[in-house]
């Protein structure tokens, strides 16, 4: 089954769109939006920080959906989606952690602190790194797909933990942007119009980038499967 022309065209179009969106988002981060009142220039990294977390959240969420769908339908394409999504999500959560550290150095005066939020995001990263280890550890392909689906569902608990923890723990120093906190139970989203525009534009951009990357990763997986099949065919002919 060759990859269809039409789908390749759509993917290429989306890839260019994502590249343009990314450049625009970066321009907005540096030129459109002004420095924040309290944090100054350092706050600019926040747009990438939150958006990349959104990307990893979407990817890990897709892995859960793919896991459930695989266990129900046993169609290997769901496993390909799950595997691809976890890889991309792991990349995005690495970006989240690194940008967070870069921000924390001037603001908290340290690269790293064992704050509940930082701990929970580390747990999340470790859980999905373990997912990759599980995949390499199981040889039988059918069993590997099944176990990976199960573990993707279990590991999502760590994502939920990361999101919930700063809303229930009063001793975190990590800022909460949206939704209620212990300090402000009503919840607030008091930011200037430009900050909000930039944030939403970045979030949209990273959503598109996530979709494009996962799609590319799935395509790569399909290609490598095809190459493996061809190889078998050639070997069988010899």
């Amino acid at each position: 089954m060759a990859y269809s022309e039409k789908r390749t065209k759509i993917l290429m179009g989306l890839t260019y769109a994502a590249a343009v969106l990314f450049v625009l988002a970066m321009l907005m981060n540096f030129f459109y939006v002004g420095p924040e009142r309290q944090q100054g220039e350092a706050q600019r990294i926040f747009y990438v920080h939150l958006s990349s977390f959104l990307g990893s959240f979407l990817a890990f969420g897709a892995a859960v959906v793919a896991g459930i769908a695989y266990l129900r339908s046993r169609n290997p394409k769901w496993d390909t989606l799950g595997h691809s999504a976890v890889e991309i999500g792991l990349g995005f959560s690495t970006i989240t952690i690194v940008t967070g550290m870069a921000w924390a150095r001037p603001i908290w005066n340290t690269w790293w602190t064992w704050d509940p939020r930082l701990t929970s995001v580390t747990i999340m990263w470790l859980a999905y790194a373990a997912y990759m280890m599980l995949r390499t550890g199981i040889e039988d392909p059918e069993r590997r797909r099944r176990f990976a689906a199960v573990y993707a569902i279990v590991a999502f608990a760590s994502v939920l933990y990361t999101i919930i923890i700063i809303r229930v723990r009063p001793d975190t120093i990590h800022p909460v942007v949206a939704g209620p906190t212990q300090a402000e139970p009503e919840g607030s989203f008091e930011v200037s119009g430009r900050i909000r525009d930039t944030l939403f534009f970045n979030m949209f951009t990273f959503t598109v980038i996530t979709v494009v990357l996962v799609w590319h990763r799935i395509r790569l997986e399909n290609f490598s499967e095809r190459v493996a099949r061809r190889k078998m065919e050639v070997l069988a002919d010899l």
Partner: peptide
């Protein structure tokens, strides 16, 4: 019950279990 099927089960179980059990 998953890690018993793995090639290196003794090392895989702690790796799988730790992140999930840390909370």
């Amino acid at each position: 019950s998953m890690s018993v099927h793995a090639r290196s089960r003794e090392t895989l179980l702690p790796i799988l279990l730790m992140p999930v059990v840390l909370p």
